[in-house]
């Protein structure tokens, strides 16, 4: 079976390499992309979309269907990670720490558990004393990181940024929370169910914007059909913002899903 998969992987890689031989050279002035497409974007993008950032205009407007499926690919990556790694068997060994004395109890019987309260805390297998410096600094930095992530998402059509980047920054702020405290603390704040719903909702927001544009009488993802609702002014930039928010939601949730599934080997109990 392993040999078969190795052959399949080598064949696919070989085919991809063979396919790249037909592509035009890097920076070739006679390539179709630099003869027609780039010139059109550079000359007309600002007039067509009223968005100063050409990259966002190309990604979220001219090629928004492509970006929509990229978001779907990100969602599928999170889903695959969940399906492959998630392990629902309850763990047998529990570790508790008696807070006043520091004694650590190791409970092997899953039916007999210690009540976690003021005296006992549920801890990981390898207990680390809480590090005040790291916790304090991370607690101070995380809100700023999250505000910056929202700024990157919202400012994607004026300056470098957008949904993917903002989503990654937001997801990394949550991962920083898991690193500086522990995985249980993150999961208490952001449950697995919420993350699953958020990642699906991100793709749904993107596709929903496209479908509503169709309902309003335009093409799929034709933002100009929203003009009767939101007004003519910068309507394409607004549509792109909506799409970027969807991308950001999906990417944030998928980043965190992949992180928690990998560090805890799918058990969602302990990890980095």
């Amino acid at each position: 079976m392993k040999l078969l998969s190795l052959i399949v992987v080598c064949l696919t890689g070989g085919l991809l390499l063979y396919g790249t031989a037909d592509l035009p050279d890097w920076g070739d002035p006679n390539a179709p992309a630099s003869l027609h497409l780039s010139n059109y974007y550079i000359e007309n993008a600002v007039r067509d979309t009223q968005v100063p950032n050409l990259v966002t205009a190309v990604l979220a407007d001219y090629r928004s269907v492509d970006t929509m499926f990229e978001t779907a690919v990100v969602f599928c990556a999170g889903l695959a990670c969940f399906l492959l790694l998630r392990d629902f068997t309850p763990k047998k060994d529990h570790y508790y720490r008696h807070v006043p004395t520091g004694v650590i109890l190791h409970v092997k019987n899953p039916d007999r558990q210690v009540i976690v309260g003021n005296e006992f805390e549920d801890i990981d297998k390898e207990w680390l004393p809480p590090d005040t410096i790291i916790k304090t600094v991370c607690r101070m930095l995380i809100p700023f990181i999250q505000i910056y992530a929202l700024y990157v998402v919202a400012h994607g059509d004026f300056s470098p940024g957008g949904g993917f980047q903002g989503g990654v920054i937001f997801g990394s702020s949550l991962i920083l929370l898991a690193i500086s405290y522990n995985l249980k603390y993150l999961l208490k704040r952001v449950s697995e169910k919420f993350l699953g719903i958020l990642s699906a909702a991100g793709v749904l927001v993107y596709m929903g914007i496209g479908v509503v544009a169709m309902v309003l009488g335009g093409n799929f993802l034709d933002y100009e059909k929203y003009a009767p609702i939101f007004g003519e002014h910068h309507i394409r930039a607004l549509g792109m913002l909506g799409v970027e928010i969807g991308v950001g939601m999906a990417v944030t949730a998928v980043m965190v899903i992949i992180y928690i599934n990998i560090v805890s080997e799918g058990k969602h109990d302990e990890g980095l």
């Binding site: 680390l128 590090d131 410096i133 790291i134 600094v137 991370c138 101070m140 930095l141 700023f144």
Partner: peptide, 20 residues
């Protein structure tokens, strides 16, 4: 301001991990 807080904290965390 943020680098002033994050670099020393990161160094502290690395040293801590090394000692551990």
């Amino acid at each position: 301001f943020f680098v002033f807080h994050s670099i020393p904290t990161a160094t502290h965390a690395i040293v801590d991990a090394g000692m551990r």
